[in-house]
Design a protein around this nucleic acid. Structure first.
Length: 956
DNA sequence: TAAATAGCAGG
DNA sequence: GCCTGCTATTTAT
C-alpha cells in the first residue's frame, strides 16, 4: 500500500442532480413543504464517500455562471438544457451552508464549469505528489485520468467504481485517456448540446479512433471513407473540430491548489446538526454523527485504499455464511425461544441499501404435520402478528394459497407452505383458522384487503384489529406511492427481494409462486412480513404525530373490510344484452366509416389522431391555422373538432365514430370479458390508496366511469342488473355534496340558506348573479351559473370559464367578480385555505385527512397556481370522500347486524348502488337515506336521492 | 415488448 | 380549473 496523499474532488452539481432524480418518484418533502430530495441525495453521497474512503484531502467544486469560453465558441452550448428544477435551485444554498459547517472547502470560479476547476486542481495536485479521485458519474471526466488521477463513479444500485487508465482504455476502446476528447467530439453530447459529427454514434466513434487515433487524424483521411459517411464527415470537419474543443476540459483555470486548505477537518458538529434538524433529516443526522463521531474503529487498513482494490465496491458486508438460520435447520428449538439477533446494519446512504443478503435475519419454513400445530400454539400466544399470503395469482377470486408468512418480531418470521391439493389446503387452513378468527390478536399487513379476500374464499373470516401499512402510509403522504418496495427503501433503507427475481417478468414465461423452490418462497414471503412489521412501527408514530390516527382507525381500516365485501359480491351483468348492443354499434360504426372515407376520398385509420390530422388539415384543409398538440401533431381533440362540426359534415361523423368506438371497445365489448366465471358477476377492485384527495378509484374494470351523459352511452347501464328476480337495484346519490361542503366550510350564509330552503342551487346562484327573480332565470343563465359553481370547486380562472361557456374572457371575468360579490365568504374561505397551506405545507378535510402541497410557495407562478387550486379543491373533494366513506361503513355494519340479504355493491364518488332483496325494500330505503344524510353533521343539510329499477339505468 | 401520447368515460 | 382509469396508436428499445 502506498502512503501517497489522497485528494477527493467532488463534482457538486452532478451529484446533486443524481440525488434529486434518485428521489424523483418519491420526493422528500418536509413538514414545511420544502423539497429536500437534492440536499439529501447529495449529502448521502458525500457522507458515503467520506465513510468509505476517509480522504485526507477533500473539496467540493461547483459551476459558476456557466462556461464563458465555450459559449463564446459556440452559442448553442448547453442551450437546450431544461431549466434547473426548482428543487435543485433551492437546495444549493443549503448545501453551501452545510459544507461550510463541515469545514469542507467549496471551489468555484466565475465563468468556469466544475469540470474545468476539477481538471485544473487535479493536475496541480498531481505535481505535488497526490493521488486524486474525481467524484462524479460524468463520463466526460475520463479524459483527465492519468496514473495518479482517477474517476470515482457512483454505480447504479450502490457502490462505486474506480476508473484508472486501464478502465478508460477498455470502456472507450482508446489507448490514451486523452482520446476520450476525440471520442466525445465525434459523437457529440445531447445533454450539453455538443453537435458532434452527424451520423456518428458510439460505435462509429470507436471505430474511427481505432483507425485514425484522433479527430484530426480522421479528417486527414476522409478519402478512405466511403458512401454517405464520407460526404457527411467531409462536410462537417469544422463542426467536428469545434465539438472537440467544446468537449475539452480546461486545465488552466485561475485557481490554486493548496494542500493545507483542502485537508479534511472535523466539522462543526452542532452547526451541521442544527441545519439537518431544520431540514428534518433524522436518518441523515444519525449517519453524519456515525461518520464523524464514532469513527475510531472504521479507519482501519481495510478502508484506507479500497478504491484501488476492486473495480466495483459493492455493498455486501456480511457474507452469507455469517447469516444465521437458513430454512430447514433445527426448527423445534426455535419456536417461541427468542434467538438473539446480531447488530443491525448501520449503513444508510442512498447508494448502500440493505438487503436480505446484508442484514441478519431468521426466516424459517414450518414443516407440515406436528410442527404446524406447535407453531400455531405459539402464534396464539401473540397479541399482534404480521402476515402475508402468497398465492398463484393476483385475482383473489381465483388465486390459490401457496403459503402464508408470519412475523411478530423484527428480523424473524415463519412461513407455512400450502399443499397444492384442495383437501390438504383445507386441512391446513383449519389448523390456522383459530389464529385468523381470534378477536384479540391484532393483524398487520400490507394491502390487507387482498389477503382478506383470498382467505374469504377459504371461508376464513379475519377478525380482530387490523393495521394496514399501505393505508397508513396513504394517510401519511397521499401523493406518494405506497407499494412495499418503495416503502422499504424510503423508510427502512432496505431493498426487498423483487418478485420478478422469483417468478420472472410478467407476460411470456412468468412462473407461478407455486413453482418457486420452498427456500426462496420462504425468504421472499417472510421478508415481506418482516418488513411490513417494521414499517408498522414506523407509521404508527407518524400517524399519531400528524393527528390522523382516528381517520385511520375509524375510517380507512374499517372501510377495507367493507370494500372487500363489496368486491367479493360483484354485480350481475347481462351479457346477452351487451352482445346485441355490440352488433348494433358495429353496424353504425361501419356506416360512419363508409361516409367518412367517401368525404375524405380515401381510406385511413380514423382512430389514429395522426392520420386523421393529415387528412383534415393537409388534404382537406378544413382550417387555415390548425391547432397543434405539444408534440407538434395536429390536435383532433373533441373541443377542437366541435368548433368545426357545423361547417363540415365529416367532422360530426368523426365525432360520432369516436364516441361509438369508445363505447364499444371500452364498455360493450370489454365488460363481458371481465365477468368472473364462478360468480357470473363483474368484480371491480377499489383502490383505496391512489387518489390523493381521499377518493376511491376503481379498476379491472373501472365501474366509476360507466357512461351516463349521452343517450347512446347510458344504454350500457341497462346491462347492470340485480342478481335475480327477487332483487332490485337501488341507487342513492348525494345531491350537490361538494357545493354543500364548500357552503358549510366557508359559512357563506346566502348559499347555506339556499340549500336549507331546498332551492335549485344553480338557479338560485343565477338569480343572484344576474339579478333576476328565480322564476325568470333562463336556461343559459342557469347553465353559466352551474359552470361557475363547479369552477369554484376546482379553482376557477376567467380563461377556463370562458372556454367552458359561450362567454368571452372579459365576460367570464366579470361573472366571477359578481359571483364573489354575491358569495363574499366563499372568496375569503378560499384565500384562507391557500394561506393555511403556505403556513403549514398542507391542507386538510373535515376528518383531518391531509394533503401536502410542496409547490405552494413555488416561485414559478404556473406551478404555484396549480398548488393553490389544489389547496381549495382537496379539502372539498376529500371531505366529500370522507363523508361517503363514513356512510358506507355505517350502512355495511347495519346490513350485517340485521342479517339482511340486501348488499351494497358499488361506490361512484357520491353514489352508492345496492342489490336490494325486494321484501327488505322499504326498510332499506329508510336505512340508506338516513345513514347517508346523517353520516356527518355540517351546517348545511345533506340530501340524498334514491331510485330503484330493474337495471342501473332505471335506478336513476 | 414496453412506455409514451392522445383521447375520452365518470364524479 | 380538480380527481381518476382504459383503449388504441405511436414510438423507442
Amino acid at each position: 500500500m502506498s502512503d501517497q496523499k489522497r485528494l477527493f474532488l467532488v463534482d457538486a452539481y452532478a451529484l446533486i442532480f443524481r440525488g434529486y432524480y434518485a428521489f424523483i418518484k418519491n420526493p422528500r418533502i418536509n413538514s414545511k413543504g420544502e423539497d429536500t430530495s437534492a440536499i439529501m441525495g447529495f449529502m448521502n453521497s458525500l457522507l458515503d464517500v467520506i465513510k468509505r474512503e476517509r480522504p485526507d484531502h477533500l473539496a467540493v467544486c461547483f459551476d459558476k455562471g456557466g462556461s464563458v469560453d465555450r459559449v463564446e465558441m459556440y452559442e448553442a452550448y448547453k442551450a437546450n438544457r431544461d431549466e434547473t428544477p426548482e428543487g435543485i435551485k433551492t437546495a444549493v444554498p443549503y448545501i453551501y451552508d452545510i459544507l461550510k459547517a463541515m469545514h469542507i472547502p467549496i471551489v468555484m470560479k466565475e465563468g468556469f464549469e466544475a469540470d474545468d476547476v476539477i481538471g485544473t486542481l487535479s493536475r496541480q495536485a498531481e505535481k505535488e505528489g497526490f493521488k486524486t479521485f474525481m467524484v462524479t458519474p460524468d463520463k466526460d471526466f475520463a479524459q483527465l485520468v492519468t496514473e495518479n488521477i482517477f474517476m470515482y463513479r457512483p454505480v447504479f444500485g450502490g457502490g462505486y467504481e474506480t476508473w484508472g487508465i486501464p478502465e478508460v482504455q477498455q470502456k472507450f476502446e482508446v489507448t490514451d485517456p486523452m482520446q476520450v476528447i476525440d471520442y466525445l467530439g465525434m459523437m457529440g453530447d445531447a445533454s450539453d448540446n455538443i453537435p458532434g459529427l452527424p451520423g456518428v454514434g458510439p460505435k462509429t466513434a470507436k471505430k474511427f479512433l481505432a483507425a485514425y487515433g484522433s479527430m484530426e487524424g480522421l479528417l486527414a483521411h476522409t478519402h478512405e471513407l466511403k458512401g454517405k459517411m464520407k460526404e457527411k464527415v467531409e462536410a462537417n470537419g469544422e463542426l467536428g473540430l469545434l465539438s472537440k474543443k467544446l468537449a475539452t476540459i480546461m486545465l488552466d483555470v485561475p485557481v490554486t491548489f493548496d494542500a493545507k486548505d483542502f485537508e479534511l477537518d472535523q466539522p462543526d458538529i452542532e452547526k451541521v446538526k442544527e441545519i439537518f434538524q431544520n431540514l428534518e433529516f433524522r436518518r441523515l443526522t444519525d449517519n453524519f454523527l456515525k461518520t464523524f463521531v464514532d469513527n475510531t474503529e472504521t479507519s482501519s487498513n481495510e478502508t484506507k485504499t479500497p478504491a484501488l482494490e476492486g473495480k466495483v465496491d459493492t455493498v455486501a458486508k456480511k457474507s452469507s455464511s455469517e447469516r444465521k438460520g437458513s430454512a430447514g435447520a433445527g426448527q423445534f428449538s426455535l419456536f417461541g425461544a427468542s434467538s438473539d439477533l446480531s447488530d443491525q446494519e448501520e449503513t444508510t446512504s442512498e447508494y448502500t441499501r440493505k438487503t436480505a443478503e446484508t442484514s441478519s435475519h431468521f426466516y424459517q419454513s414450518v414443516a407440515s404435520g406436528m410442527a404446524t400445530k406447535l407453531f400455531v400454539k405459539n402464534l396464539l400466544n401473540q397479541t399482534s402478528v404480521c402476515f402475508d399470503t402468497e398465492t398463484t395469482g393476483l385475482n383473489p377470486l381465483t388465486a390459490e394459497l401457496v403459503g402464508i408468512a408470519f412475523s411478530w418480531e423484527v428480523g424473524k418470521g415463519f412461513y407455512v407452505p400450502f399443499p397444492e391439493d384442495r383437501n390438504g389446503a383445507k386441512e391446513l387452513i383449519e389448523i390456522l383458522r383459530p389464529f385468523f378468527e381470534n378477536e384479540n390478536i391484532e393483524k398487520i399487513g400490507q394491502n390487507l384487503k387482498y389477503d382478506i379476500k383470498v382467505l374469504a374464499k377459504y371461508n376464513v373470516d379475519v377478525k380482530g384489529n387490523l393495521f394496514d401499512t399501505m393505508l397508513a402510509h396513504y394517510l401519511i403522504n397521499p401523493d406518494m406511492r405506497h407499494n412495499m418496495d418503495v416503502l422499504a427503501e424510503t423508510y427502512l433503507n432496505y431493498t426487498p427481494i423483487s418478485i420478478t427475481e422469483l417468478i420472472g417478468k410478467k407476460g411470456k414465461n412468468q412462473r407461478s409462486m407455486r413453482e418457486v423452490p420452498l427456500d426462496k418462497q420462504t425468504e421472499y414471503a417472510v421478508e415481506d412480513a418482516d418488513i411490513t412489521l417494521q414499517l408498522k412501527e414506523h407509521f404508527e408514530k407518524e400517524l399519531r404525530e400528524a393527528n390522523t390516527q382516528k381517520l385511520f382507525d375509524d375510517i380507512e381500516v374499517p372501510l377495507l373490510r367493507v370494500l372487500a365485501a363489496m368486491e367479493l359480491e360483484g354485480i350481475n351483468l347481462d351479457k346477452a344484452f351487451l352482445n346485441s348492443l355490440s352488433e348494433e354499434l358495429n353496424n353504425d360504426i361501419a356506416n360512419l366509416e363508409k361516409s367518412i372515407y367517401e368525404a375524405a376520398g380515401e381510406e385511413f385509420n380514423i382512430a389514429s389522431p395522426k392520420q386523421l390530422g393529415v387528412i383534415l388539415f393537409e388534404k382537406m384543409k378544413l382550417v387555415d391555422k390548425p391547432k397543434k398538440t405539444k408534440t407538434g401533431q395536429y390536435s383532433t381533440a373533441e373541443d377542437v373538432l366541435s368548433y368545426l362540426a357545423k361547417d363540415h359534415e365529416i367532422i360530426q361523423q368523426i365525432l360520432d365514430f369516436r364516441g361509438l368506438s369508445k363505447l364499444k371497445s371500452t364498455y360493450v365489448d370489454a365488460l363481458p370479458l371481465q365477468v368472473e366465471e364462478s360468480t357470473g358477476h363483474v368484480h371491480t377492485d377499489y383502490m383505496q390508496t391512489v387518489a390523493a384527495t381521499g377518493r376511491l378509484s376503481s379498476n379491472n374494470p373501472n365501474l366509476q366511469n360507466i357512461p351516463i351523459r349521452t343517450e347512446r352511452g347510458r344504454q350500457i347501464r341497462k346491462a347492470f342488473v340485480p342478481r335475480n328476480e327477487d332483487y332490485t337495484l337501488l341507487a342513492a346519490d348525494y345531491s350537490q355534496i361538494e357545493l354543500r361542503i364548500i357552503a358549510a366550510l366557508s359559512e357563506e350564509e346566502t348559499m347555506i340558506n339556499a340549500f336549507k330552503n331546498g332551492e335549485d342551487i344553480h338557479a338560485s346562484t343565477a338569480s343572484r348573479v344576474f339579478n333576476v327573480p328565480i322564476s325568470e332565470v333562463t336556461r343559459e343563465q342557469r347553465s353559466n351559473a352551474k359552470t361557475v359553481n363547479f369552477g369554484i370547486i376546482y379553482g376557477v380562472s376567467a380563461f377556463g370559464l370562458s372556454n367552458q361557456t359561450d362567454l368571452s374572457r372579459t365576460e367570464a371575468k366579470e361573472l366571477i367578480e359578481t359571483y364573489y360579490a354575491t358569495y363574499p365568504k366563499l372568496r375569503s374561505y378560499m384565500s384562507e385555505q391557500v394561506d393555511f397551506a403556505r403556513d403549514n405545507g398542507y391542507v386538510q378535510t373535515v376528518l383531518n385527512r391531509r394533503r401536502y402541497l410542496k409547490d405552494i410557495n413555488s416561485r414559478n407562478a404556473v406551478v404555484r397556481g396549480a398548488a393553490e387550486r389544489n389547496a381549495v379543491n382537496a379539502p372539498i373533494q376529500g371531505s366529500a370522500a370522507d363523508i361517503i366513506k363514513l356512510a358506507m361503513i355505517n350502512i355495511h355494519k347495519k346490513l350485517a347486524e340485521g342479517n339482511n340479504k340486501s348488499k351494497m355493491l358499488l361506490q361512484v364518488h357520491d353514489e352508492l348502488v345496492f342489490d336490494i332483496y325486494k321484501p327488505e325494500l322499504d326498510a332499506m330505503k329508510l336505512l340508506i337515506k338516513t345513514e347517508m344524510e346523517n353520516a356527518y353533521q355540517l351546517s348545511v343539510p345533506l340530501d340524498v336521492d334514491l331510485d330503484i329499477g330493474d337495471n342501473w339505468l332505471e335506478a336513476h
